[in-house]
Nucleic acid binder design. Structure first.
Length: 515
DNA sequence: ATAGGGTTAG
């Protein structure tokens, strides 16, 4: 009674030979493939033990018994399911029990899009060839997805072919379809080919919107032909009262091009021009400028841009702050960097752990001159420990050193233990400082355990460490312990010449006479 | 009415 339902896996059964490249003819001439709607994709359809899959073992494009194919299909289901996170459109296509109905070309486009997003380009193209079995006719949207698919595969010629087919079929490719192609070409630096498409469209008498032009601007900037980009931008600006015009994306593209070649001032000039003609700069505009100044070694001007943003009612985002912070660190403006760090933390932005490490190390170094900075280093370091499971080796080393400077040997030892826990070697640590420090505070046992920590973890204990400790033990009359250590040193080939030889014999003799 | 299209960091 219920009409047989085409399951997704059946789509891949080779009832007929697949056409190598998808054709765009609207033929319904697949006799063995009864076109039945709707298509239901259920989790069950993908069941890999399904006996229907046995039919697919012949020479075909998709072999369901092949391990990787199974994995791919599985991943595909995941991706289609996770479509719910895709642009608020889930409810339309995802029904309650995870069934996926295809009734309209729009549903089909969504499926193709899902495949595209999951980078299943070949599957996407294959699905496209099955389009007619759903008695569906591709529309502009379908074609732009297919064009994008070819582009992602780096098959620009094929993509262009699709565009021509669209035109031949009498369909009007709209600006969105073209944008996909132009963007893909420009992103790969194939600006010349992109321009050919522009020329082609012009000859066809089809007008393009501002977006494809923006792609071109970006493409030109990308290959370093910024001046040409500026020229085009100016042309676009002149035509404002026509249908084209410029928008903030256009300016962003060219400004970025200028910034990338060290012409940030000119970029700022363009910014002012954009303001003049009434465009509203967005966070990307400002971030572009920040990046420009940062690259040019003008990190303090990044802070200026940050202030400008606030004046323009533009809320700096994580990228704004990260870029500024990165610039300040790169050019060694450590105090300002800490200020920006504090601001980020205050807002609740996560700071990159590597930048935090750099900040800690520089603050430590700087604190030799400006004592107070060490507290800032502490603050950032504590945050790092809260955040990550491990802290990078160099940063802990520097902090251990800084703790030693301040006679905070407990903290130093705690961090040395962390280093061991994290599997770091202790070779870079100045253990004699730690041991001397503990001894100086009269804490011989802590000094001893520091030495043992180093020894137990394959570190080379140098003469100074042994000497300091043996002397200290001797001074405290702990002769037995001193001689033990003396022996350990000897075993390592370190012959100690302490202030006073430990005299175990004397010691025993003493005991002997007493009893 | 509407799917499909363009921007910034490390």
């Amino acid at each position: 009674m219920a009409s047989p339902i085409t399951k997704c896996f059946q789509l891949f059964v080779p009832h007929y030979t697949l056409i190598k490249t998808p054709s765009f003819t609207k033929s319904n001439n697949h006799p063995n493939m009864s076109p039945v709607k709707p298509l239901l994709i259920t989790a069950h359809s993908f069941s890999l033990t399904n006996s229907s899959l046995q039919h697919t073992t012949n020479n075909n494009l998709i072999n369901f018994n092949h391990k990787t194919t199974k994995l791919r299909i599985k991943a595909l289901v995941q991706n289609i399911k996770s479509l719910s996170s895709f642009k608020n459109k889930p409810d339309k296509i995802l029904q309650k029990d995870a069934q996926f109905q295809i009734q309209t070309i729009s549903d089909f486009n969504h499926l193709l899009m899902a495949l595209l997003i999951s980078k299943e380009f070949n599957l996407c193209l294959i699905m496209f060839t099955k389009l007619s079995s759903f008695q569906l006719v591709p529309d502009c949207c379908t074609y732009s997805i297919i064009i994008r698919c070819h582009c992602e595969k780096n098959d620009v010629e094929e993509a262009k072919g699709v565009l021509f087919t669209v035109l031949e079929n009498g369909l009007q490719p709209d600006s969105a379809t073209i944008t996909v192609l132009i963007n893909s070409l420009c992103k790969r630096g194939k600006v010349k080919k992109a321009m050919e498409v522009f020329e082609f469209m012009r000859r066809k008498g089809l007008k393009l919107g501002v977006q494809p032009y923006n792609c071109l601007l970006k493409g030109l900037s990308y290959i370093g032909r910024v001046d040409e980009a500026i020229e085009i931008l100016m042309g676009m600006k002149k035509r404002t009262n026509l249908d084209l015009g410029v928008d903030v994306y256009s300016y962003n593209a060219v400004m970025d091009g200028l910034c990338k070649v060290g012409r940030s001032d000119e970029s700022m000039g363009l910014f002012n021009e954009a303001i003049e003609i009434g465009l509203v700069p967005n966070v990307v505009t400002f971030n572009t400028l920040i990046q420009g100044y940062s690259r040019e070694g003008r990190p303090m001007e990044c802070l200026g841009v940050l202030k400008m943003m606030k004046k323009h009612d533009c809320v700096p985002d994580c990228i704004s702050y990260s870029t500024v912070l990165h610039g300040l660190l790169k050019w060694n403006e450590i105090v300002a960097a800490f200020g920006v760090y504090k601001e980020m933390v205050g807002i609740g932005f996560e700071v990159d752990l590597r930048m935090m490490g750099t900040l800690v190390r520089r603050l430590c170094k700087r604190s030799l001159k400006e004592k107070g900075l060490i507290h800032d280093a502490d603050e950032v370091f504590e945050k790092m420990k809260d955040r990550g499971l491990v802290v990078d080796k160099r940063t802990v080393e520097v902090m251990v050193q800084a703790y030693c400077w301040r006679d905070k040997f407990d903290e130093a030892l705690a961090n040395l233990n962390d280093m061991v826990r994290w599997g770091y070697s202790l070779e870079a640590i100045e253990f004699e400082k730690v041991i001397e420090g503990f001894c100086g505070q009269g804490r011989v046992d802590d000094a001893l355990s520091s030495l043992l920590l180093l020894h137990a973890n394959g570190g080379i204990v140098d003469r100074v460490c042994y000497e300091v400790l043996v002397n200290e033990l001797n001074a405290r009359g702990r002769v037995f312990c001193a001689s033990f250590l003396f022996g350990v040193a000897l075993k390592q080939g370190v012959v100690l010449v302490p202030n006073k030889e430990p005299m175990p014999c004397e010691y025993y003799e003493g005991r002997g006479t007493a009893s």
